[in-house]
């Protein structure tokens, strides 16, 4: 089972992708929800908000413990910031992957963009990438593998236990990163559906929050 940290941010978008791959997923709101997980996704959102909520109820300590037990962790965008050992101008939070990251490094929302890149280790086809007020990984330490470098910055990196991406695979129709992470966690994530899921649309997330589920 893979958990998605459910404090703030684009939680259901990740749950939706995992569901498409047939991977069992759970929302993580309390330290106890980390039990039995093979992997944990820290989604996009605002890193100071996530960091504050992580500390209030001791989920940060529980995540560090889970990591020691061998739980793999993937951070997208804000999640990647929380995982870095160095953050430009700020103190670090979880500090689980040796890299320096800079928050909101491209500018304002008008500088958000999409592109595509070849990441051979993750997919044989080019992967669409969505950057939203994204951070940049400035450098990585020894033992950290760079999965994707674009111009002067690193966009994806990993170690045996950690995956960090500054973009949002959960906001595209492409399941390659979710399959890659599931396999990193030792879970079987099959070849079906195809990596570019034709049934995904930008509003797919809404099925997780229909009005009928509200009061």
């Amino acid at each position: 089972m893979i958990g998605v940290l459910d404090l703030q941010g684009d939680v259901v978008e990740h749950l939706d992708h995992l569901e498409r791959l047939g991977v069992v997923a759970r929302r993580v709101k309390e330290p106890s929800h980390l039990h039995d997980l093979k992997g944990l996704i820290i989604p996009g959102g605002e890193s100071t908000c996530l960091a504050r909520l992580l500390m209030i109820f001791g989920i940060d300590a529980a995540i560090l413990e889970a990591y020691e037990r061998g739980v793999k962790i993937w951070g997208t965008c804000a999640g990647a910031i929380l995982l870095a050992t160095q953050i430009v101008g700020e103190k670090r939070y979880l500090g689980l992957i040796d890299m320096e990251i800079e928050r909101n490094s491209f500018g304002s929302q008008l500088d958000s963009f999409t592109t595509a890149a070849s990441i051979p280790k993750v997919s044989s086809e080019p992967v669409p990438l969505t950057f939203i007020r994204a951070p940049k990984i400035r450098s990585v330490g020894t033992g950290v593998e760079i999965l994707l470098q674009i111009d002067d910055y690193i966009a994806a990196a990993e170690t045996a236990g950690i995956l960090a991406t500054v973009f949002h695979p959960e906001l595209t129709n492409n399941l390659a990163f979710h399959r890659y992470f599931s396999r990193k966690c030792g879970l079987a994530a099959g070849e079906s559906p195809p990596l570019a899921d034709p049934t995904w649309t930008p509003t797919s997330w809404t099925r997780h929050s229909r009005v009928t589920s509200a009061v």
Binding site: G45, C77, Q109, T130, I132
Partner: peptide
């Protein structure tokens, strides 16, 4: 369309939060 999608997606990042 792509720009509009990105703009909706920024709001998706704010979900569960306080402005």
């Amino acid at each position: 369309t792509k720009r509009y999608e990105l703009n909706v997606q920024l709001a998706q990042m704010l979900k569960g939060g306080v402005i």
